[in-house]
Amino acid sequence: MARLQRRFVFVALLCAACSVRGAGPWQDLADDGLHDPAGPGIGVLQQPGEALSVLPQDGAGNHVHWVKALRDGFITPRHALADEPPPAIDTTEIIMRDTSTLPFVRFPHRAHTEWLDCTICHDRLFERKVGTTPINMGAILQGKYCGVCHGAVAFPLTECNRCHSVRDVPVAKAAAPP
């Protein structure tokens, strides 16, 4: 009996732990430190938790895995205001090897062209020819190159391993250094 009681207390505490913190990591607008709780619009706007809690979860940023949400059909955001055919999806990947002691960077065009179109990055942010843009973490941390989006709206720059994700990729013969 005493054991059952202990279990009941444990479960009750678990429930309390969950309810105290709300349904997830999303702050209600009135308490988020940015919105004016006295503003007349505050009661009308959609709460982040309502929209985001039903999407695939992630550990950083909005706590939403946006690429997965799109790919798996949880959301179907329009790519343009007008009724235009969707832009082409590029599935090529680029491996960046000049990463010092960190794993190489794998850049997947697919995830990026699913959300963007080519003109947003090319040639304003990145040259089309691989290896000709002087990408480096100092510039990225200051909001340049990848940092235009990553660190502002796409997954944040604390997620090192999501870009630096490749070890021991054999260098293609044609691209091998002499």
């Binding site: 929209a51 959301i75 790519h79 959300w115």
Partner: peptide, 13 residues
């Protein structure tokens, strides 16, 4: 709110 808009529109829009 970026989160609200990207549920409905891709970045390119």
């Amino acid at each position: 709110p970026h989160w609200f808009h990207r549920v409905r529109f891709r970045c390119a829009a």
